[in-house]
């Protein structure tokens, strides 16, 4: 929905509070008094990371009971951080025509 030119919070609302209201359901979410239909995602980035689907692991709660628990194990042949032995940057020399 963000690609439909809604702001991130509006996009989140359209698939959560807006969708539930269309269905005539009481509001759900981590707010006292609301239905305990919740999603837990890894707290590794900001809300934008959640919207961008950066994390696949999630625990889904419906009516206060865990409905689904999904974990993702991943193996990557890439470093987790950039830790070069020395910050030597080489300049690419573009050969000029003779």
């Amino acid at each position: 929905m963000t690609a439909g030119h809604l702001r991130p919070a509006e996009a989140l609302a359209a698939v959560t509070t807006g969708a539930r209201e269309v269905l005539g359901l009481p509001p759900a979410g981590p707010v006292p008094g609301h239905v305990a239909d919740l999603v837990l995602v890894p707290d590794s980035g900001d809300l934008g990371d959640v919207l961008a689907g950066a994390e696949d692991a999630r625990v889904v709660v419906a009516g206060g009971r865990v409905l689904a628990d999904t974990r993702v194990a991943r193996s990557l042949d890439l470093p987790t951080g950039v830790d070069l032995p020395s910050p030597v940057l080489t300049r690419t020399v573009i050969p000029t025509a003779p």
């Binding site: 959560t16 539930r20 979410g29 239909d37 919740l38 995602v41 959640v50």
Partner: peptide, 12 residues
């Protein structure tokens, strides 16, 4: 701990 909570989504 280490998890963030959001409202669940609905498919209308």
């Amino acid at each position: 701990t280490g998890w963030r909570v959001l409202p669940a989504a609905a498919e209308p």
